[in-house]
């Protein structure tokens, strides 16, 4: 017989919370297929017209997607390098001020992105002529760095450093040890952190809306701009594609690194 460890009350609330969390996403997906401009339930018919509309150049969604991917991937790539070395320096060596250093590395997390964005905006206006992509890139790489540092540290701080001695005693030189022991073992944390960081950058609005120039606008800003002018199911269609993207990511994550990485 199985032990009963949870009551009906917690089960009920859990199910309600799940419904609450999924409801808007389900609504969006269904809405994306309505033929009418005003979303009705149940939908009157089925249409893919709004999906076709996404690719219409007047929406600028594809261009925005390209910009968002560029910024997100570049910032994440740089931060994997910066974040992993930073996490290693904290976890591998014992020294005074470790905690202070960790707080320093994660400090951008405690600053409202809108405040940081405004600071950058003032700096840029003082310097002048900073290109649109660089304006966003600097902001993004700073605000997403803490995610990679934190996730990597959370793996490395339970890391058993004797493993390095073990590898050394078996004939691995320091470089071999580095690539065979801490790197593969920290991988799940780094991957989870990189994924969160990338998504944060990809979805970021406050900073981008202050710093983007008319020539370089990211997808979320494009969607918000579109929303202000037209409130039609094209929004549902692009949203559905983004939801699909997240769904694919989470399935991949579950498969390759497991979801416990996110339970802090």
């Amino acid at each position: 017989m199985r032990e009963k460890r949870t009551g009906w009350f917690s089960c009920l609330i859990a199910v309600l919370v799940m419904i609450f969390l999924l409801a808007p996403l389900v609504v969006i997906v269904i809405a994306s297929f309505t033929p009418t401009a005003v979303v009705t339930f149940p939908p009157k018919g089925f249409s893919l017209a709004w999906y076709a509309n996404i690719f219409h150049s007047s929406t600028h969604f594809m261009e925005g997607l390209g910009n968002s991917l560029k910024i997100g991937l570049l910032a994440t790539a740089l931060d994997v390098l910066l974040g992993v070395t930073a996490a290693l320096s904290i976890c591998r060596y014992d020294f005074k001020g470790k905690n202070a250093l960790l707080n320093y590395f994660t400090s951008p997390m405690y600053v409202p992105s809108v405040a940081f964005a405004f600071v950058l905006l003032q700096i840029y206006s003082q310097i002048g002529g900073v290109p649109g992509m660089l304006r966003l890139f600097i902001g993004h790489f700073v605000i997403i760095l803490p995610y990679i540092v934190r996730n990597t540290v959370s793996v490395l701080h339970v890391f058993n450093w004797t493993l390095e001695d073990a590898a050394t005693s078996l004939g691995a030189n320091p470089v071999q040890v580095f690539f065979k022991i801490p790197i593969p073992l920290a991988k799940p944390g780094v991957l989870a952190g990189a994924l969160l960081a990338f998504l944060y950058s990809f979805d970021e609005v406050a900073l981008s809306s202050l710093l983007s120039t008319p020539r370089f606008i990211t997808l979320p800003i494009r969607i918000m701009n579109y929303m202000e002018l037209t409130f039609d199911p094209t929004l549902a269609a692009i949203s559905t594609l983004l939801i699909l993207g997240s769904l694919i990511l989470i399935v991949l994550m579950e498969k390759f690194i497991g979801l416990d990485m996110f339970v802090k």
Partner: peptide, 21 residues
């Protein structure tokens, strides 16, 4: 998965869902 999934979806998209509702 149900908890993490919306977590990975853009705030713009999630707000849009509530606007429709």
């Amino acid at each position: 998965i149900v908890i993490l999934f919306p977590f990975l979806v853009s705030a713009v998209v999630r707000s849009y869902g509530w606007m429709v509702i």
